[in-house]
Simulated assay, not measured.
Amino acid sequence: MVALDGPSGTGKTTVARKLADRLSAGYLDTGAMYRVVTLAVLRAGGDPADGARVATIAGGTSFGIGTSPDVQSVTLAGEDVTAAIRGNDINHAVSAVSAVPAVRALLVARQRKIVGEVLAEVGGIVVEGRDIGTVVAPDAPLKVYLTAAADVRAARRSAQDSAAGRETNHADALASVDRRDRLDSTRVTSPLRPADDAVHMDTSELSIDQVIIALAELASQRGMLSDRAAEVTR
C-alpha cells in the first residue's frame, strides 16, 4: 500500500492514479469522499459550519466511489456526481465539512474497509488524501508527502478549472489554496501534516512522469511492484 498525502495542487490525484496503474494496484481518492458528503450537505440545505447538522446528514448519506485508477466514479444516491463534486461551491465548503469529527470518524472507517477489500482482492492500493499516513493507514509500507510552492499549486488549480470549463483566475486560485491550507492544517481532528516516516517530495519543478518514476523506484525498493509493473520498470 502507498499512502499519498499533501495539500491541494501538488498533483496527488494524477500521481496517485498513474502510480496505481503502474503498480497494478487499486486506487482510492479519499478527498472525493469528503466532497460527496459536502455535496449532500449543500443539497440538503445544511450549513457546513453547523457540525451537528453536518454529522446527521453525513450519517444518512448513501454514496459510492470507484477504486479503479482508470475511471473515476463517484455516486450520490445512485446519481453520478463525479463532475459535480469538483465545483467551486464544493471547494469553498469542503474544509468545514471535513473538519467535523463525526464526519472524519465515519469516513475513515469506510476508507479502512475499502482499503482492506481492495488489498484482499487486488493485492495493492494507492490511497491519496490528507491524513492517510497519519490516521487512515499509519502502518502503510510507503508513505509519501507531496508538496509544491503555493504559487505553483494555484497555477495548477487554475488550469484544472479552466480545462473543466469553470471560471477562474490566478489570484482567486491562490487565495483558495492559501485558505484551504490554513483550514486543513489547523483543524483539531486529523490536521494536514506529514507522517514522521513519510518521504517528502517537492513537485514544484517536476513533471508528472518524473514524480511517477521516483515513486515507482521507491515502491520497487520496498518490494511493492507486481510482476507486470516490474517488467515495465526495467
Rank of each mutant, 00 (worst) to 15 (best):
K113S: 10
I65G: 02
S207R: 09
D196G: 03
A230H: 08
T186L: 15
A58S: 11
Q221K: 10
S62E: 07
A25T: 13
G64E: 11
D172F: 14
M1P: 06
S190Y: 08
R35C: 04
R179W: 06
A150C: 04
A140L: 03
L107K: 07
I114H: 03
E205D: 14
V135T: 10
A173Y: 10
E117S: 13
A214S: 10
A171E: 09
A105R: 14
R112W: 03
A155M: 00
D21W: 14
N88W: 01
V199N: 02
T186G: 10
G133V: 02
I208V: 15
V144I: 13
D47W: 15
S95R: 11
E79P: 02
L192Y: 09
A16S: 12
Q111C: 12
V103N: 02
I85A: 12
E217C: 00
T30F: 00
T233D: 07
L146V: 05
G66H: 09
L215A: 02
A229I: 10
D197Y: 11
R179A: 05
R156V: 01
A214W: 06
K18V: 13
V152K: 05
T233S: 02
V144Q: 15
R234E: 06
D80P: 08
T147G: 01
L174E: 06
S98R: 10
I212K: 04
T30E: 00
A20W: 15
D80K: 04
E128L: 13
D139W: 00
R182T: 02
A137Y: 02
R86F: 03
D139Q: 08
D70M: 07
M1L: 14
R180T: 01
A3V: 07
A20T: 14
A155R: 15
K18A: 14
G46L: 10
T189K: 11
I114P: 01
V81I: 08
G11W: 07
L183P: 02
V15N: 07
A154K: 10
R112C: 01
V100E: 09
Q221C: 01
Q111T: 08
D89R: 13
E205L: 07
E231D: 06
R228C: 15
A214N: 12
L19K: 07
G46P: 01
V74M: 08
A99R: 03
A198D: 00
A44F: 10
G31N: 12
E121C: 01
T233F: 14
S95C: 12
A99P: 03
S95L: 02
P48K: 14
A229D: 11
G66M: 11
Q210D: 12
H200R: 09
R228E: 13
V135Y: 02
I65S: 01
A148L: 04
P141N: 15
G64S: 12
A154M: 07
A55W: 01
I132C: 04
P101T: 00
L4G: 09
T203M: 12
L206F: 07
A109N: 00
P69Y: 07
E231C: 10
A198G: 03
A83L: 06
A96V: 11
V115K: 03
D5L: 05
P194H: 12
